[in-house]
Amino acid sequence: MPVTFADGYTETLRAPTFNLTKPGYGAFDDELMVSPRIALPMIGLGLLEQIPDEDIKKQAVSNNKNADKNANSIRGKFNWVMDPQTGKHALGRFGWKAGQTKLITQNQSAFSEDMGLTSNIRPHESCMPAQTACMNATTGADEQGNGKPPVEVNDEIAKFVEFYTRNLAVPNRRNADDAMVLAGKKRFYDMGCQSCHTPRYQLPKTNDDHIEQHGQVIYPYTDLLLHDMGDDLADRTIAGKLPPKDAQVEFLANSYEWRTPALWGIGLAQTVDPQATFLHDGRARTLMEAVLWHGGEAAKQQQKVLKLDKQGRAELNAFLKSL
C-alpha cells in the first residue's frame, strides 16, 4: 500500500492477509474474531505496574473533556477487567488490549493460553468443547487416582517468574542531546504524539514488596489507555467483516481499540532482533511505517506526519531511535 508525503516521497506499507486452515476439532464460526499478535517487549514491566491507577484514570478524563470540544481530538479509556487472582474488577494495563491487571496474572495467562500450562490462578486448560481429551485432562484424576492433577506451574515457580519479569531493565537513552534528536522531539510534541504517548511518570514510595521500583521517575511514553486506531488496524471476523463498535472483544476493549504501547527501548528493537517488526501483528517493518498506520483518534497526527519533508522525517526518526 503506497502512501505519499506532501513532498512526493512515497513509503510503501505492508497490508496483511491471513489464511486459516480448518482445525481438526470443528469448523470455524463465521463471527470468529481473527487477531494475529506478536509478543510485546518485556522491559520495564515492573515500572509500568507501579504507575498509580489514578494517574492513568486522570489521563482518560482529561482526554475525553478535550474530545467533547473537538470531535477529532484524542480520546482514551481504561480497560476495567476481572482480576483472576482476586475475582474483583481492576484497571487493566498489560497486553495489547490492556486485558491484564498485574504481572502475576499476565504471566499465568501466558502460561495457560500460550503454553498450555496450568497454575493456581489459571488451574484449567483452555480447551474447546470438542477437545474431549483436553477436557478430561483438566478434570480427571492423576495416575494414582487422587482427584485433580497438580498444577504445572506451582506458586514458587510463579513468584520466580514474576520477579524476573518485574525487573527486566529499560535500556539507557542514546544521543538524547543530539541536535537531530532534539529537533525530532520538538516535532513529536508539536504534532501532539504525546497526547497518547505520555512521556513521564513519578512512581510513589509504597509499603508493598516491590521495593526495586519505588520512587523512580520513568519515561515510558505511554498512557496505558485504550484508543480507537481506525478501521485499518481493527480486528476482523474470519469472513473479513469489521465488527460493530459496541462489540467487546476483551472486557471493555473493542476491535478498534489498542493500548498505547510504551516506546522506551523501541530504538533498539532491531538491534536486539534484526527481524523485529512493529504494531500488534508485526505488519510495520520500520518505525515510520508504524506511524503511518495510525488512524482513528490519531488520524490528525498521521496527516501532520505526511506533511513532513525529508529533513522532518529524519528528525522524527532520530528521536524515536533514541528512545
Rank of each mutant, 00 (worst) to 15 (best):
W80L: 07
W80V: 00
W80S: 08
V81T: 12
V81L: 06
V81M: 00
V81I: 15
M82Q: 13
M82Y: 10
D83Y: 00
D83M: 02
D83G: 02
P84H: 12
P84I: 11
P84G: 14
P84S: 15
P84D: 13
Q85Y: 07
Q85L: 13
Q85C: 05
Q85M: 12
T86P: 03
T86H: 04
G87E: 11
G87A: 10
K88V: 00
K88P: 01
H89F: 15
H89A: 04
L91C: 12
G92V: 02
G92C: 11
R93D: 03
R93A: 03
F94I: 04
G95P: 02
G95S: 10
G95C: 09
G95R: 06
W96H: 09
W96D: 06
K97P: 06
K97A: 10
K97F: 08
K97D: 08
A98S: 15
A98G: 14
G99T: 08
G99S: 15
G99N: 14
Q100H: 15
Q100S: 15
T101A: 14
K102A: 07
L103V: 11
L103S: 08
I104N: 03
I104R: 07
I104M: 07
I104K: 10
T105S: 09
T105F: 02
Q106H: 14
Q106K: 15
Q106E: 14
N107G: 05
N107S: 14
Q108W: 01
Q108T: 11
Q108K: 09
A110C: 12
A110R: 08
A110F: 07
A110P: 00
F111Q: 11
F111V: 07
S112H: 08
S112P: 09
S112M: 09
S112I: 04
E113M: 05
D114A: 09
